[in-house]
Design a protein around this nucleic acid. Sequence first.
DNA 1: TCCTTGTAGACAACTTGGTTGACCATATCG
DNA 2: CGATATGGTCAACCAAGTTGTCTACAAGGA
Lengths: 146, 146
Amino acid sequence: MEPVTMLLAMSYRAMGDRFHERLAQVGLEPLRPAHGYVFRFLAEKRATAQDLATHLGVTKQAAAKIVNELVEWRYVLREPHPTDKRAQYVTLTTKGRDYLRFADGMWADLEGEMAEIIGPERLDALKNDLKRYLDHTGVHHLRPVW
Amino acid sequence: MEPVTMLLAMSYRAMGDRFHERLAQVGLEPLRPAHGYVFRFLAEKRATAQDLATHLGVTKQAAAKIVNELVEWRYVLREPHPTDKRAQYVTLTTKGRDYLRFADGMWADLEGEMAEIIGPERLDALKNDLKRYLDHTGVHHLRPVW
DNA sequence: TCCTTGTAGACAACTTGGTTGACCATATCG
DNA sequence: CGATATGGTCAACCAAGTTGTCTACAAGGA
């Protein structure tokens, strides 16, 4: 029997691949997981590039690159920081918020698909088991660089 | 509730991190997942660099780099192909086989740890559910580049 | 046999997504 | 006010892959 590690990795990959397949079908830019992480972060609070860097667990330079891409693609825009003239806030555009809704819907679809296959009650049990494992091992935040 | 995708990714990462922690403790070279894949492949059959490339799902050049590292670190060695003067077989050294045993033991330990946390019967169910999902989505082989 | 076509492996240049280091302008604290 | 810390940018580097090219050998006809 295959080790759990493999099964976890493969399942994650399977879902991720299906996600990106559909992304490509819709003709969207090739967004990476890190971008999704940025969107979700920005949806909750205003943040500077440095805030994003901290949240993503990368250097500010790496975060700046990501922000640059997203600005070019019109998913986010920079606006002046009200009190700190060095800093700039990064905020979601309408396109950015639309993408986030779209992505959330798709993840939900994929999870629903899984529920159909293994049964909703098994899915629930599975999620609970994984959460208990994570709780025990003390992993609560995950860098989006996988 | 967090989406399954996140939970799968985080659980995989948690196990992987624990694995590499222990690797580092033992003072071994910083082997990546791809290396483990190579070992497991070589343990079963003799293979050329090209065979490995196909198995790993990367170009032969990328496979050649990996083989070079492993040769430097004395985990594998090259020997002439008996019938094809172009090709070379890559075979595990004793050090390579030792590593493989060590790694297998550690993965088993980590799985045992998970069994303790969520219960052996839940672990079993979880693995079965994931397998059913993978079966359904048609993912049977996974490239080690995650 | 020879000749064409295919393939294993090496070498080099490029790409991607990160890193470190240096710097400027502005903030902040004693 | 002055020393020190911090946000953002620029530039150089690195790691792990890619594509493209080349050589030597293999293999299957004509």
